[in-house]
């Protein structure tokens, strides 16, 4: 494992003391794909990007479709959404909570909003009006202004109808490729959300007969961890996408019957290996995985 060139890059990331949380600046909307995937943090640019892991997946390459999920579709899933979308991967995001919950003036009085209807802009306006100083200081306003540049409102996973076209979301970041309303990979940020996703997929009954890899990456819910977790998710997504496009490159006799060993393997069967390798790289984010059905 130590020979993995990516190791060298990711290790210092995990152990670097994340100082003041610099909530990621909302990237400019226009040059989304031309921009490097990382947020341009200095330590990132100092190190040479690992070979074979381009930060932006070129448009002519095969792309898996991703979905990030956390509890409120605000912090972790949105950070990951941004990073995946910035890497040119088709991405949508959801929350599994019953309501959107944001910290309020005290721990027992959170600010609560409805999913699918309250826009990030409206929440931003309300919080700014409530207590600008407090919500600037705890990073909420910054986070919300990032979010409103990604998509317009938090969505609830349980209310999502997979397979329903998402033509009304074309303005969202990462929208190209997700028009049909299905994804290949769901990445949750907390075990609770992982359970909720599997449970909801049981309830939905798998009517589409379409396989979906559901992953969980345990990320603590704060800005710093979300940033690191977003990088970890991007790492996972790029590894998965690479495997999938390799499978896509194989054909017929030159494909799974022609090769030997790992080269014969298709994408789906490689997933446990990819995840295990990823887990070695990111030991602080315990992972889970399941092949579920839309």
């Amino acid at each position: 494992m130590s020979a993995d060139p990516r190791l060298a890059r990711s290790r210092p990331q995990q152990h670097q003391p994340t100082p003041v949380p610099p909530p990621p600046p909302p990237p400019p909307m226009g040059n989304l794909l031309s921009k490097p995937g990382s947020e341009g943090t200095p330590d990132e640019s100092e190190q040479s990007p690992a070979p074979g892991q381009a930060q932006v997946v070129p448009d002519d390459m095969f792309k898996l479709k991703f979905c990030t999920v956390c509890a409120s579709n605000q912090n972790r899933s949105m950070e990951a959404h941004l990073q995946l979308a910035s890497a040119g991967l088709p991405t949508i995001s959801f929350g599994t909570g019953s309501l959107v919950r944001l910290p309020g003036p005290t721990i027992t009085s959170p600010n609560v909003y409805h999913f699918n209807s309250t826009t990030y802009r409206a929440i931003h306006a309300e919080l700014a009006q409530q207590n600008t100083q407090l919500y600037t200081q705890n990073g909420l306003l910054n986070m919300l202004s990032r979010n409103l540049s990604i998509k317009s409102y938090p969505e609830r996973f349980q209310d999502w109808v997979p397979g329903k076209p998402r033509l009304d979301h074309t303005e969202d970041q990462g929208a190209p490729g997700t028009e049909a309303g299905v994804v290949d990979v769901v990445i949750t940020c907390e075990e609770r959300c992982f359970d909720a996703v599997l449970d909801d997929l049981h309830n939905k009954g798998g009517k589409l007969n379409r396989p979906v890899h559901v992953f969980n990456v345990d990320i603590r819910d704060n800005h710093e961890e979300a940033l690191v977790g977003g990088k970890a998710i991007l790492d996972l997504a790029l590894s998965l996408n690479e495997a999938a496009s390799q499978e896509r490159g194989m054909y017929g006799d030159s494909g799974w019957q022609g090769g030997v060993g790992a080269a014969r393997q298709g994408f789906d069967e490689k997933v446990p290996d990819i995840l295990a390798e990823w887990q070695e790289r990111w030991p602080n984010m315990p992972a889970l995985w399941s092949l579920a059905w839309f």
């Binding site: 075990e191 599997l198 449970d199 049981h202 446990p272 295990a276």
Partner: peptide
């Protein structure tokens, strides 16, 4: 207990649990 086996065991356990809880 390879990393792969660990992750697979955990995943199968969790998947079974999700099914039964459902």
């Amino acid at each position: 207990m390879t990393p792969k086996n660990k992750v697979m065991m955990k995943s199968m356990e969790r998947t079974t649990r999700a099914l039964l809880v459902n």
